[in-house]
Design a protein around this nucleic acid. Structure first.
Lengths: 187, 187
DNA sequence: CCACCGGTACCCAAACTTGAGTAACGAGGG
DNA sequence: CCCTCGTTACTCAAGTTTGGGTACCGGTGG
């Protein structure tokens, strides 16, 4: 439902093994406070829950008293892939999902990232078409409640800017910008 | 924090006295399922909480067994005003607040609505300027993590469309569209 | 040597959300 | 008259989020 799971799984995946505080500082380095509704108290709950569900293995740390280390499982990697793909593919109303997906984009090979964003683009265009059609239907009425039409107008604007941005990102990825999962580290 | 309080207070205000199910059907008539994260189970919690905080008076209904009627208090009207103004004035990351504010816009007199939207516009333009400046600073770096720059690009697009929409709405309100709080009911 | 302070690391109660469940009522068919 | 079915109306347990704690460690100045 929220982006927390995806972010936490993604952070643990980066390290292989991580504890709560490390996950937290990784999220800070992504600037996640600005765009994700993740308060630091929730991380520990999420870690425990993900462990309980079998996506992480938890062990009490040998180094620190009271610290818990989490290691991602094979099942966890699979779940991460699913969450990441859905976040990129589905144009949700919630921006935090997209932002989280974008932050973790480098975990995917380039062609897959492009394919998912093309799916997103198609869904956005479909949404835009439906919004415009609806706007047309609402065009006439002057009864009370008409001001709610403005919401649909807002969605139309938003759809346009989402489409433009997605197109641009796809182009930049196809042009070879950024460093994704399947590529060698070349300076 | 969420838009629930505003929506529930707004719905009760419309009726003067209302019970949970009536609030629910009012929200349905606004199409709130589409744009607000309000599940019907939360309404009853919100009503009880608002009553506990003195924004609503609750009485068990004489008509129906087990039904609870809520009446808005003077304190509740004040709180509603505050929440509504903030929802319109502050460009939050969360769209549900704006949508709720828009749905309840007719509770304000026209000149106040326009003034609040102008405040919003100014804040959006400020945000846009900061985003562009930041984009400029991020322009050079090619280190790992550069892909996060795309998030800032997205914000720039979003800011543009938010500004355009807000301008349009202000214009339409100034041109006398829609029926607001201070106006006689003229066919 | 010790007192303090900032960084590391996590816990927990209170609040909120979710979705499934319960139950009473009224209209309409047989 | 009774049975069913959709509407009205709310409850509750389980899950999640929040934000204010707690506690330990290491370095630094006196």
């Amino acid at each position: 439902m929220s982006a927390t799971r995806l972010l936490v799984l993604g952070a643990v995946l980066r390290f292989g093994t991580a504890h709560g505080y490390l996950v937290r500082s990784e999220l800070v380095s992504w600037g996640a406070e600005e765009w994700a509704n993740v308060k630091w108290g929730s991380l520990y709950h999420a870690l425990r829950k993900l462990a309980e569900m079998g996506f992480l293995d938890s062990t009490t740390s040998p180094d620190w008293p009271g610290r818990v280390d989490y290691e991602i499982t094979e099942k966890g990697r699979k779940e991460f892939r699913t969450l990441l793909r859905d976040a990129l593919r589905q144009p949700a109303q919630r921006q935090d999902m997209l932002a989280a997906g974008l932050a973790l984009l480098p975990e995917l090979p380039r062609d897959e990232a492009v394919a998912l964003l093309n799916e997103r683009l198609a869904a956005l265009e479909e949404q835009r078409a439906q919004t415009l059609e609806r706007l047309d239907l609402l065009g006439k009425g002057a009864e009370p409640g008409t001001h709610l039409r403005e919401l649909t107008v807002l969605w139309a604007y938003n759809a346009d800017s989402a489409i433009a941005w997605t197109r641009g990102l796809i182009e930049r990825l196809e042009a070879g910008e950024y460093h994704l999962a399947d590529e060698e580290h070349t300076g």
